[in-house]
Design a protein around this nucleic acid. Structure first.
Ligand SMILES: [Mn+2]
Ligand SMILES: [Mn+2]
Ligand SMILES: [Mn+2]
Ligand SMILES: [Mn+2]
Lengths: 216, 216
DNA sequence: TAAAAAATTTAGACTAATCTAAAAAAATAA
DNA sequence: TTATTTTTTTAGATTAGTCTAAATTTTTTA
């Protein structure tokens, strides 16, 4: 159906256009660790297949059929991550690269049965929503901790950075998905945030607060 | 490490040389649905990597490191088949093509954890032995039903043909892996075999008897 | 608004894997 | 043991995906 490279491009374009409108050639190149000239070639191919809207020099976005394919890949990625953590006992910082490979297993029936086997989970180990077999998912409003005021409570529900080192740091601070927390202080000098989690208090940098999302 | 094509060639060579000594260029081409000239190119590449012993015009066999890789692929193939049948409720005739894709997921740790998750199964849904993480497996002696004499008992333990149509036929006749059977008659005229299975008797052709293996 | 800088595309080349057609070697038959 | 057939290899081409370097377009700056 589509090659591995095509699928990776569609997924990258999906993520780059999730918020704003168009993805640029350079943005795509950097997110796929490739060169702009390679991207241009692929954009032509995807445009020929009517999976993206492409005007030279103007960047691209997905057509409905391109988005459908991208959501299918993201669904597979997140379901496999859930499987790896919940069934095979991997840690949340170990599964992303494995899922990058597994998301290209083509069978729809396989992924739908895997979904059923795991009880139709709605979120992956990093708090990201898992699209259902029709590509639908509920997009709850999450805020970075850095945007929350003192004395507000919330539940840790997502991360903006998926690197191993960040996830391992959060593990160590016991700041993991599902934890109830309260913001007890914000240091004016450097915008660090003091957070109450369970019985203890931890202080996190502005950088960390920017990348840790809570549901209020 | 190795490309998908290289892995498929190594696996094909492994299976072709399981019994006899060398695999010929044409045998490999036909088992991979490709052309002899493509095979020759790949044989040179695998020989350069010291994964096969190749003398032009003389066919090939695996070196120890080539065999190790082949056994790793076969281990993954059979473990995924077991997973698909035992955990995701696929039928034994539906899993081979899926496993052909899944066997190329590269992580060793993933497959070892999957093995553990399933309780270290020793045989796949078709009765084929699953190599352990060191590539070792016990090779029990199986006989085709066509080689058994009247009144002998045994347990159905393997198949020589893995096609969907054959496996579906066996399902319908309730001749599946693990069934205890007895050979009650052999028709002299066409070598059909009459088999007692559970409470009923079924008659199978010589062709079927050739491809259905039992442990005595 | 013209010059400089940045972004993007084009041109031309490379690798892995495949193919067809032709040449060469090995096996078989007369 | 020579001729024919079969098998295998070589030669040359193709496609997907990538790259570097050069050309072109767009954006920014002065
Ligand atoms: Mn991920
Ligand atoms: Mn994730
Ligand atoms: Mn199989
Ligand atoms: Mn099998």
């Amino acid at each position: 159906m589509n090659t591995l490279a095509e699928e990776n491009y569609l997924k990258a374009i999906y993520h780059l256009t999730e918020n704003d409108g168009n993805a640029s050639t350079n943005q795509i190149a950097s997110s796929l660790n490739t060169k702009a000239s390679s991207v241009t070639d692929m954009l032509k191919k995807l445009a020929d297949k009517a999976l993206i809207n492409y005007t030279p020099y103007q960047g691209v976005n997905l057509t409905p059929s391109g988005e459908k394919i991208a959501l299918g890949i993201i669904r597979k990625h997140r379901l496999w991550e859930y499987f790896l953590v919940e069934k095979l006992n991997f840690k949340w910082d170990q599964v992303h690269d494995l899922a990058e490979e597994m998301e290209h297993i083509s069978s729809e029936e396989l992924i739908d049965r895997l979904d059923q086997f795991m009880g139709y989970p709605t979120h992956d180990p990093h708090g990201d929503p898992i699209p259902d077999c029709n590509g639908r998912f509920n997009t709850h409003e999450l805020k970075p901790i850095s945007a929350v005021t003192i004395n507000q409570c919330g539940v840790i529900s997502g991360v903006r950075n998926h690197s191993s080192s960040f996830l391992q740091y959060l593990d160590k601070q016991q700041l993991t998905i599902g934890c109830k927390i309260m913001i007890t202080d914000i240091i004016e000098y450097d915008h660090s945030v003091v957070v109450q989690t369970g019985n203890k208090e931890v202080q996190i940098s502005r950088e960390v607060a920017n990348n840790l999302l809570i549901a209020l």
